[in-house]
Amino acid sequence: MNKVDVAIIGGGPAGLSAGLILGRARKQTMIIDEGRPRNAVTREAHGFLTRDGISPSEIRRIAKEQLRVYPSVSHAEGTIVSISGEDGNFLLMTAAGMKITSKKLLFAVGMKDRKLGIPGLDEVYGKSAFVCPYCDGWELRDEPLVVISRGAALMHFAPLLSGWTQRFVVCTNGPDELSEAERDELRDHQIPLYDQPIRAILSSEGMVNHVVLENGTEIPCTGIFFKPELVPGTDLPQVLGCRISETGVIAVDEFGKSSIPGVYAAGDASSLMHQSIAAAASGALAAAAINGELNKEAWQRKQ
């Protein structure tokens, strides 16, 4: 049986950042990670001060190296399949049968991509097809792009992307879910709109060159931004009774505390700000809150 103060489920920027804060606070901490990060396809992470352009895998490698300084922080590779208990005494079980008892929990497991079923998308994802212009817009500035999105998400994204390039067309891959006023808005900005299903994305060595529609239309482009369909990395927070927001993430306060005592969340598990630096920051905040809670509980027991 492994006994820790804090079990962190997920070893991305949020979980590793939390581990650093807790290690420095002298808390027994275990980071449990299945080793299949969502950004594994990403070659470079951007917008992370002092780490701009570094690969996500290198960020993880450096983080783990720095965490070795703190003997109270340990790592385990595995998938948590069950959690029981309550604040101060949680019992976690991995798929391999390892048991962990923990006083507090931090979910930093993030989200997972649901397959969109577009032929050729997997070949370009992370190479010339991306989801976040803050992360990859600079590299595609002023380039001819295809945006794959629809409805309200599209009408938020189109004005945002226009700061990097105004040379883009929209493919909704089926019904556009727009009002006539919204279609007029796109026309006013000279943005072509195609609602035909996408037959295939053509590329060479991961670099897109055309998007082909079912009616045979070929749209040349050098990059793609698309709206991913995301699902939670685990359903365990819901099993524990954590409140889930309307956007599908764990509802937390400004310090990452969920509706269940002793349970916290950070990173993509509790936010729509899918950037490494935002995840790392939220992990640090949650860890500080957890440490403060543990210290206060220990202080009160001595009274």
Rank of each mutant, 00 (worst) to 15 (best):
N89I: 06
N39S: 04
G267A: 02
A96W: 00
S74T: 15
G163V: 03
N89G: 08
A284Q: 08
F48H: 10
L92N: 09
P159R: 00
S74R: 04
P37L: 07
L160K: 01
F168L: 07
N2V: 04
H75T: 10
T79G: 02
K104A: 07
H156A: 10
T247K: 10
S204L: 10
R167F: 12
E180S: 13
L121H: 00
P261M: 07
V169K: 05
Q66G: 08
K3Q: 15
F90E: 06
S203R: 04
E229L: 10
A280L: 14
V263K: 03
R24V: 10
I32M: 07
G47M: 09
G23T: 12
H75E: 15
S149D: 14
P13Q: 09
L140G: 04
F225Q: 09
L154M: 05
P56A: 03
I224D: 04
I148E: 00
A279H: 00
R68L: 15
A108R: 03
D136A: 08
I290V: 09
K3N: 13
C135R: 05
G47W: 01
S82R: 01
K104E: 02
L294S: 09
L193M: 08
A108I: 11
L186N: 11
V146M: 06
G262A: 06
D188N: 13
A288E: 15
G78I: 11
E58M: 15
R243Y: 02
S271A: 05
R183C: 08
A266F: 00
P37T: 06
